[in-house]
Design a protein around this nucleic acid. Structure first.
Lengths: 184, 184, 184, 184
DNA sequence: TATGAATGAGTGTTCATTCAT
DNA sequence: CATGAATGAACACTCATTCAT
């Protein structure tokens, strides 16, 4: 990958994560990446497409992490707790903005390309949580219900943690997730 | 309240709800309200302040609805289910954009006035859910944990329903909420 | 009419006539008119619309001149010669660019608004030449053929005079027009 | 001639004829010719020079056609009519844009290289029409006047046919040309 | 109280051209 | 001979806000 393209994606990743798609302009991105404006448009047909590619890279990172977790030999409970630990870690970072997919969806057109990209990632996210729940064999309820509930708790925790800049949502989501998993 | 001010708030309510704070310009608002631009600035010092007042009105509407629900003689379970029904109703409206407080928080500066307004509403929301849970006397666990979990499930359901334009999150959140309440 | 609007139309008239629609940018127009860019867009929805209004004013000026000529008591021959004199006068001006309608048509999309505006003016032009020919009673041929021929000669003269910056086309067009009128 | 050069000239010929010099960018040209941008600048010092070479090729094609017509054994009248037939044929093509020399002159600087190229071709055009008229021996008037008139009628017909996308100008120009030739 | 007119600073995007390889 | 990468300047257009009346 060309150097300019990499710099642009890195700058976009940082700025989009910090302030969101609509609040970051091309000018700021290219200044941050230290490339000319025309260079940007040689690598990306539009700001929207840059965002889509950033979301794609984010999705791939997350998927890799999840694949590893699904193959992890630890118990389901330990791995569930690892998810909340990871979320807490992200939450403590200066630039925490919540789930980039959810926030990007919040500020883009319902029918647009970015929303389709988000919807795809959310489907993958649902698959992940259901797969994790399916490994929880002692569960008396169907794994898909448990997985969906875990996903919603995490999603809610991210949203509320972002909106109020506090950590209670993560801690309480973890507690509820454990209860639903039968570990209370 | 002056007529122009009322028209502006109504137009803002519709447009902000439909497309979000950052995606609506004041030109569109004043055109929709059919007032002159200078009239707008006589009633509101800035677009941000208009948004803050809109959020205030929304918060008051929600609070009134919640106060009524807390005084409602129905069982906690029935009222919990009413919350999800109301959410499903909103979800089915054409212009559903998720929780206006969460989405507004997603597109505004972390330290700004609007974020403080959102944080305040989220605190009230947490109070509501804890109050409802507190009325669920047979609960063996502390009401605050149950209320927080309910809130997170609803918040996650709104976010996921918005991101993917589907209704499963609401249905699954309801199911999990009932389980946590001991009604499974 | 507001002052800024008038200044913009005047600046556009001069610049568009000098260098043509596509070769003049908004920046140059507003600098020449000494108004802010946003002021421009408060008065005209687009550069294209500004051009359309300029063409409209030009068409009106021409039509007024023509109406006067059709009511002029001089002989048809004298008035025909007046047309060529007027053309020669324009030709000698520093910024002669040929017929603004023909040149604008040359640089705009075939199906666009500006082309429709041009086509309308060309229809009016044809009407004028036929009306003038119709007043030439001694003509043995139908006036519409004579009028059309005059129009084509003038149009060709304008085009060739512009392309080569010389005056022969006007002089020769006049000679041919007189021959066709039976005055040779 | 190198292959890239040929492809570039062919692409330019098609695009410039369709939409005009100023409305076609070199990006589009190189994409259409399927060559790299730097390759373009190895063969042509500038877009302007590419246009100049295209005009040169066009002029040569036209000149060849005219030379053949001047050597054609048919009568002057038949060959005059052939000119209008050829114009009608071009007019019926989808991408008719009028005389490429006239339209290019309309959108370029008065003193530039392209305008000089156009002026040269117009001089050749004038020579052609005078030569054709000179072969019309029975003409009582000087051939140069008749030839110039024919040229202006054709030029006007091209301009008006382009501006309004209709065929009447060609038919009426032909009629007038015949009258001037003494064939009415 | 209400307004039409005006604005400086920004938006995302495209231009013809050059450079290092 | 050919190219992928890069560019400064310009493009048409929009933003939230202010001013004179």
């Amino acid at each position: 990958m060309s150097q300019a393209r990499r710099k642009l994606l890195d700058a976009a990743a940082r700025l989009f994560a910090e302030r969101g798609y609509v609040r970051v302009g091309i000018n700021e991105i290219i200044a941050s990446a230290d490339v000319a404006k025309a260079t940007f448009y040689q690598h990306f047909p539009s700001k929207e497409q840059l965002c889509a590619e950033w979301l794609g890279e984010e999705a791939e990172r997350v998927e890799a992490w999840r694949r590893a977790l699904l193959d992890d030999p630890r118990t389901v409970r330990e791995r569930l707790e690892a998810c909340f630990s990871e979320l807490l870690d992200r939450l403590e970072r200066e630039d925490f903005r919540g789930c980039v997919f959810a926030t990007t969806a919040a500020m883009t057109d319902a029918g647009g390309r970015l929303r389709r990209r988000v919807a795809e990632q959310r489907r993958n996210t649902r698959d992940f949580w259901r797969a994790l729940a399916a490994q929880h064999e002692s569960s008396s309820k169907p794994a898909k219900h448990l997985g969906d509930a875990w996903m919603l708790l995490v999603s809610g925790a991210e949203t509320e943690a972002r909106s109020t800049r506090s950590t209670w949502p993560v801690k309480k989501a973890k507690r509820a997730a454990l209860v639903l998993g039968g570990w209370d």
